[in-house]
Design a protein around this nucleic acid. Structure first.
Lengths: 124, 124
DNA sequence: TGTATATATGTTCACTCGTTCATATGTTAT
DNA sequence: ATAACATATGAACGAGTGAACATATATACA
């Protein structure tokens, strides 16, 4: 159990040392990985996905989204907070209401590209 | 609290009924939303993202990934199982070892596009 | 000032999920 | 057959999180 190479790090034998070393250089920095996974965590919830799709179709207030998705105002507000913190949506106040809209077009593109992925999977 | 429109569904007043109705038609089906969120859940973990980046750089066996990420073989194997179930990676047996690689290029594109999103956010 | 409305937030609960430990499966070599 | 190795899997523990309830803030209007 101890005949491993010098690049050991966790008690596991490295089978293809050179390849592992070259791949290690190509991995993105930890901070970037964290940001990425956080973005995907935000997208990894059905409610938030529906909200994003809805906002891509039209600017909406919290109450409208609640009605649209048949969910409580509180639940929607909580999710919008997360989406806002993740800079996926932006808010605009108009009197008593606050209207939400996508903060940029990247999310929409990511969603569309992901749908493509699912489609092609289903067809194979 | 009861003067809502006929399109009520959860006890919330619908402010902009027409808009809500038009947006409702544009929402993807529930099944598709579930698939999407499941895909993003798979991407919403730093370990899995690193694995995907690594596999995009080179075909690797479990042991190599373990060494690369300084994590136990069991942990990597579990994550690979999820990624395989989600059809994000595929496996190829060669003797005692099993080599993993991306199942298609969509994931790579999604990852790259998402990095772009993060980059532009950081620059603003 | 009051009340009503629209949204935000704090707390709690239940559940999901990533990790670890121990064990099982499958392959190669002896 | 047995032993060694690479990987898979089952069980359990702990952290994270979505939703619901109650409450707080903010705006509009009387």
């Amino acid at each position: 159990m101890n005949e491993k190479t010098e690049s050991e790090c966790c008690g596991v034998n490295v089978i293809h040392e050179e390849i592992v070393r070259s791949v290690a250089c190509k991995l993105p920095e930890e901070a970037k990985v964290e940001e990425l996974s956080h973005l995907f965590k935000m997208l990894g919830d059905p409610t938030r996905i529906k909200i994003l799709f809805a906002l891509n179709a039209a600017e909406l207030c919290v109450c409208d989204i609640s009605a649209l998705l048949s969910m409580s105002q509180s639940a929607i507000s909580h999710q919008l907070r997360f989406l806002k913190q993740a800079r996926l949506v932006k808010a605009r106040r108009e009197g008593k209401m606050i209207f939400y809209s996508p903060s940029d077009t990247h999310v929409k593109e990511i969603l569309e590209q992901s749908i493509t992925h699912i489609f092609e999977d289903a067809e194979e």
